[in-house]
């Protein structure tokens, strides 16, 4: 049964093959460590996540407790700052550091759950459109275009003003609105993978369509999915901040960074840190996530880099 004489001549001189694929044998990590922007993103992001998780341990005060005697205490680096309130207090005398720490939870919850919702919707639509093409593609394209005609902020404002703002409402509204980019990117990624001959080979072997989509296609578009996910997460966090700032997102007294900026507005002239601190927090988180996404794109698809 064996063709000894033709036993691949190429084999003879080839060194023994290493047993793992590129992304499992440490290459991914090695490339990640070399990518400094990505690493900066990772560090900031992990710090913020740890802050959010450990908020009850780290926060020096209850973020909800008001103290009329301690209103508008300046942060530590300013005159009259105290270690009692390292980032000062707000107009109601609540400890600002504690509110920032708890606020990170809100931002991350919004970001993560919005991306899960919108990712599920967008990926399903995009993969179906890309895989089946034809009529399915036409319908999905129509749905995507319809969605793109809706201005996110306006629709979100309208819905929230009708049903009232809360964490769940904000997540649902953003999740149901932000799937367009997932759909578009997943559609083109699926189309590209679908045209590969290994998908044809799987069909010729007799694999069912769900098997092909889940086992042959999804693993190959997962990279782009993660990249889009990070960008949409940053987007959702910014939108939540905007909605809360407008008073239509998370409702007071919940500590949300957007809401804190809104509440600090009236003190803009004399107590600018009330806006700067939560503003800087939003900036750091969004920047970290974007660096993460950019880095992932470079690391996962090195051949696309110039």
């Amino acid at each position: 049964m064996t063709f000894k004489e033709l036993s691949s001549p190429e084999d003879a001189a080839t060194p023994p093959a290493p047993a793992k694929p590129r992304w499992r044998d440490g290459q991914f990590l090695r490339r990640a460590f070399k990518h400094s922007a990505f690493m900066v993103g990772v560090v900031i992001f992990v710090l913020i996540v740890l802050m959010a998780l450990a908020a009850p341990l780290l926060a020096p005060h209850d973020p909800y407790v008001q103290s009329m005697t301690n209103r508008l205490v300046p942060p530590i680096w300013m005159e009259n700052g105290t270690w009692e309130h390292p980032l000062g207090t707000d107009g109601l005398g609540r400890d600002y550091l504690s509110r920032i720490l708890y606020g990170a939870r809100i931002s991350l919850i919004i970001g993560i759950f919005t991306v899960i919702t919108s990712g599920l919707i967008g990926t399903t639509l995009g993969v179906l459109a890309g895989y089946f093409g034809g009529r399915v593609d036409l319908v999905v394209n129509f749905v995507v275009m319809t969605r793109l005609t809706l201005p996110v902020i306006m629709v979100a404002l309208a819905i929230v003003s009708i049903v009232g703002g809360s964490l769940i409402v904000v997540i649902l509204v953003l999740g149901l609105l932000l799937w367009d980019r997932f759909a578009v990117v997943m559609r083109s990624a699926t189309m590209q993978v679908r045209s590969q001959e290994y998908v044809l080979a799987a069909r010729a072997v007799g694999c069912s369509t769900p098997y092909i989509i889940i086992r042959e296609i999804l693993p190959n578009i997962f990279g782009s999915l993660v990249v889009i996910g990070t960008f949409e997460m940053a987007n959702a966090i910014l939108l939540e901040a905007a909605l809360s700032f407008l008073g239509l997102g998370v409702q007071p007294p919940t500590p949300s960074w957007g809401l804190m900026v809104a509440e600090g507005r009236q003190y803009l002239l004399f107590e600018p840190w009330l806006i700067m601190v939560p503003g800087a927090a939003i900036f750091a988180l969004v920047l970290a996530i974007n660096l993460l996404g950019d880095g992932l794109r470079d690391i996962l698809t090195p051949e696309n880099r110039s």
């Binding site: 064996t2 063709f3 036993s7 290493p18 047993a19 694929p21 590129r22």
Partner: peptide, 29 residues
């Protein structure tokens, strides 16, 4: 064995193979 590819490639991934070796894998499939 039949397509002339050493068994030690069982756990290799396509990017570790040359064009000819890949075609042997496709033929085996």
């Amino acid at each position: 064995d039949m397509v002339g590819l050493s068994r030690r490639y069982l756990d290799s991934y396509p990017n570790q193979l040359s064009g000819g070796q890949r075609q042997r894998v496709a033929i085996a499939r």
